[in-house]
Each structure stands twice: as structure tokens, then as C-alpha cells.
Design a protein around this nucleic acid. Sequence first.
DNA 1: ATACATACC
DNA 2: CACTGGTATGTAT
Length: 347
Amino acid sequence: EFGVHSAMTYFEAKRLCPEGIFVKPDFAYYEMMSRSFFSFLKRYSLLIEEASIDEGYVDMTEACMRVASPKAYFQKIMDDLLKEIGLKCSIGVAPTKFLAKMASDMKKPLGLTFLYRRSLNETLYPLPIESFFGIGKKTSAKLMDAGIVTIGDLKKKVDQDDAEIKTLFGKYFLIIKEEINGYGDDFVDPTPYDPKSLGHSETFPYDTNEEYVIKNKLRDLSMEVAEGVKRERKKGKTVVLVIKDSDFTNHNKSVSLQEGTDDGEIIFETVSKLYDSNYLGIMLRLVGVTLQNLYNPSEETVQMNIWNFEEYEKMDKTKLLVNELNRKMKKPALKIASEVNKKNGNR
DNA sequence: ATACATACC
DNA sequence: CACTGGTATGTAT
């Protein structure tokens, strides 16, 4: 009625509909509902991959073999989720995660879509290129310039190993070639979320170059980042100062520490120096602090010295061998099998 | 190691 | 001209 839609900022929506009721976001509530949602899914399969706060991939191979009508079964799951938890969802069923994601986006909300390899000509290939999961605004604009309008157009080019398309996609090319033909990644990875970076940023109410305003914000953000990594029981080696200037241009300055940290003071002092030496006096719209290269301190490889020699003698021989190899390779290339349990962790 | 671009929710 | 905040990953240097 007023032209307000999803993904619109508060300010735009307020301008279009000043009398609207505006509700503050409540991330803790979303996380609570997210946990309910994933617990609900566990009834149907234990093989679940949390793709985001409100999306997941579930391997339903077994469940489907048990039931007479998979369609009715999935419909009941959707109905039950609404009845019991009060959440509306859409379900896509397909032989790969990519096709399932594409299927789930075809009808929503409360849509149930099955996608079959044999019918991709009629279902997937007519869709506009920008609906391809993984191809965003920038890439679809480039593809449109090359005359590629639909997913089917892209399939044709990709199957011909078109040189232009190959360079555009880089190392994604082969993945896209598989996905677009209905093959590729069909393994649901249930390992828990394991962040590799963690940060916070905030837009100022007005652009500012006042040092005390900016430093105060950097201090607060640094403390929040420190809290976050401590909650994850991690440390991080690289501190990043994120800024957006008054032209909406983003800049990053980062520095890697000798030792990983989870200490707010150290993070603040580090971004503070980065700010002093790069942006002093410049009008800023946003500042942010991010900690990258997160790792579990317990898995830190130890450089042997005379002080830990005695402990070293007592340690498990296999662990020592792994640690030694990793130290020599300057990165944790190997792990004890029992410690390999976190998604995307160093393997 | 650093800087930046792109994509997603 | 322009949406924000958070994270992942690829490319270039």
C-alpha cells in the first residue's frame, strides 16, 4: 500500500509510511527461534547443515524411503512447523544442495517444490540469471552484457567452456558447471558453526572526524569483539579497522599480531594506531573493528623451549608428531582425528 | 600479509 | 548516486 518492502532501511520505510509501527530488532529472540527451528528439524533427520540463522539443508534420503508419499510428508513437516513453532517456511527438495536452494526460492512462503534433473529445462533454465544462488548483482550485470539473460543461456556457455565465462568465474567455474547440470555438492555437512572472523561496525548519526567520538566508538566496538571471541572460546591474530568515508567508500587497514588475542584493550590499541596513521581528520560515516584468523587457543602449536621441555616429554606421542609437523609447515595442516569436528576448521 | 571485491542473509 | 550489519571467500599484489 505504501511501497514498503523487505530489505528496506528504516529511514526509507519511515519516509514512505511515517505512521507505520516500527519494531526494534531482537536478535536474541531470532536466535531462540532459530534453535527451536533446528531442534524441530532433528525429528526428521539428524543430518542437518545450518546454512544460516533461518535456513538449513537436511538429508532426507532415509526418511523419504520410509514414507509412501514424500510430497505429503514434506507438506506435513511444513504444517507442523507452523502449528507448533509458529514459523512459515518453504521447502525445496532436490538431488543437490544447490538445486534444493533454488527450489525453495521458487515458491514462498509455505511453498513446496520438487526439482528433478530431468526437468531442469522447464524449471531451472528459464529463470533469470540473477536468481542463480551465488550470482549477485555485479556478476549478473556482466553476464547480461555478454548476452546471458537466463540460467539456460549460462548453461549453454558453460557447457561449451566459453573462455570469457571461464575467466569471469575463476575457480568457481567448474563448481557452477556441475551445479547448473544438477550435479556436484550433495553432502549435508552437520559440523557446527565455527567462525573464522568476528566483527562489529556502526554508522554514525552524522559523518564525523572528531577524534574522541571515533576513538570512543572504536573502544566500544573493540570490547564487543573481545566479548564475542571469548564467548566462542577463540583468539584472533589479525585486527582490522573498517571504515566508510563520507563518499560511501569502504576502506580496510589490518595488521597481524605476533600473538593471537581476545583482549579488548589490545584490540582497541591496535585499531587505534591504524586509525591514527591512516584516517586522522577524515570525515567518516562508519567505523568497524574485526578480528580475523580466529583459532582455538587449545589447538595452538607450541614452539618447544627449555621451559616446556618437561611437559613435552609427558605428552602423547601422536599429538607431538602432529604438532611438530604443523610447526614445521607454519600452519596446522594436520590434526588429531578426534579434534576434527568443527565446520571449515583447519584440517 | 594486506587490501579489496563480491555474495549472502 | 548510495541500506545496515555480519560473515565467508576469491583475487590481486
